[in-house]
């Protein structure tokens, strides 16, 4: 089942639709790796409108389109575009949708993707709008959990870092509330998961715990999802250093963890995962980033399929 015209927010998805995307993404893996050729989207053009830089996300969408035989156009820097001359987003999107078959939008303002979807005659995929939504990140996170653990539900998932302001962890928590399992939120005081989101878990009957101490829970987890703690959230450098050091995951903390526990991170990381974790059997963050390609390929195909013949 998939009946979306645009992909703006993960909150608009039913679990069945997410499952459809993830099932489709599995089939895309050999094509994403270059092991199998595909011309499924030959003759189709994807426009990447990036009003703020995000190299990884843009490359991932471009590769996804090209591996399927499609073409890409777009910009990665608005200072080189008509936006600098004062053109509205509405006009830019209207124009781009008359050139291309599908649009990927990254924008610093929240709600930009919803606005774009109202003015575009072609499907719009939100690749991040300010502190708002970034649904393809959530989809690739879910895809990674499913690929690595065999299923999404039934896992004990720990999410660590800045859980108050992080949009990635909010979207992921919402999505996981559709699947079930156990959750532990690991955050410094004042940066814990907002009640609005834990309320959703309660309504779905999903058990969760909150803690400030990563080491006390790490050996119980099936998945540890690390995120960055931002310096600007703290009144001074001293406070930040104190908290950040307790959220710095290093090899020594992995001695007693479950054998098949995996560590994820949306990247880029700063100090929260030490490089000595990279070559442990638990590290999956680079694989996770790579999973962005098959997930986005699946999404592009489903959106274009739905719009074919319109």
């Amino acid at each position: 089942m998939f009946n979306k015209d645009h992909v703006v927010s993960i909150r608009e998805f039913e679990r069945e639709e997410i499952d459809t995307i993830l099932d489709h993404a599995v089939k895309m893996v050999p094509i994403a790796r270059g092991e199998k050729k595909s011309l499924e989207l030959e003759g189709k053009v994807l426009a990447t409108l990036f009003f703020e830089p995000s190299t990884r996300t843009m490359l991932s969408f471009e590769i996804a389109m090209k591996r399927l035989g499609g073409q890409t156009i777009g910009f990665a820097n608005p200072s080189q575009s008509s936006v600098k001359k004062g053109e509205t987003l509405a006009d830019t999107v209207r124009m781009a949708s008359s050139y291309a078959d599908i649009i990927v939008l990254r924008h610093p303002q929240e709600g930009a993707a919803r606005l774009a979807s109202k003015f575009s005659s072609k499907p719009v995929i939100n690749a991040g709008d300010g502190a708002g939504q970034h649904p393809t990140q959530t989809l690739l996170d879910l895809f990674t959990i499913k690929e690595e653990k065999g299923r999404i539900s039934g896992n004990h998932i720990g999410i660590a870092g800045d859980l108050k302001y992080g949009r990635t962890v909010h979207s992921l928590t919402h999505a996981l509330s559709m699947y079930g399992g156990e959750m532990t939120f690991i955050a410094p005081e004042g940066l814990q998961m907002p009640d609005e989101l834990t309320g959703e878990l309660e309504r779905e009957g999903i058990g969760y715990h909150k803690t400030e101490d990563l080491e006390s829970v790490i050996d119980q987890l099936d998945v540890l999802y690390m995120t960055r703690i931002q310096r600007e959230r703290f009144p001074n450098e001293e406070e930040y250093e104190k908290v950040a050091s307790s959220f710095n995951l290093h090899r020594g903390m992995l001695d007693d963890v479950k054998d098949d526990m995996i560590i994820m991170h949306p990247l880029p990381r700063v100090d929260e995962i030490s490089p000595d974790v990279d070559d442990t059997k638990h590290a999956r963050y680079f694989q996770q980033a790579a999973n962005g390609v098959p997930t986005r390929m699946a999404l592009i195909c489903l959106l274009l399929d739905r719009n074919r013949g319109l």
Partner: peptide
Amino acid sequence: TCITNQKEPVEPEFLVIHEKPVSIKCIYCE
């Protein structure tokens, strides 16, 4: 930082999510 506060040709629009007390949610930035 909601897009509706920029010079765009849209009127702000909200969904009423709670009546008493009144609570509304922007359909753009949520």
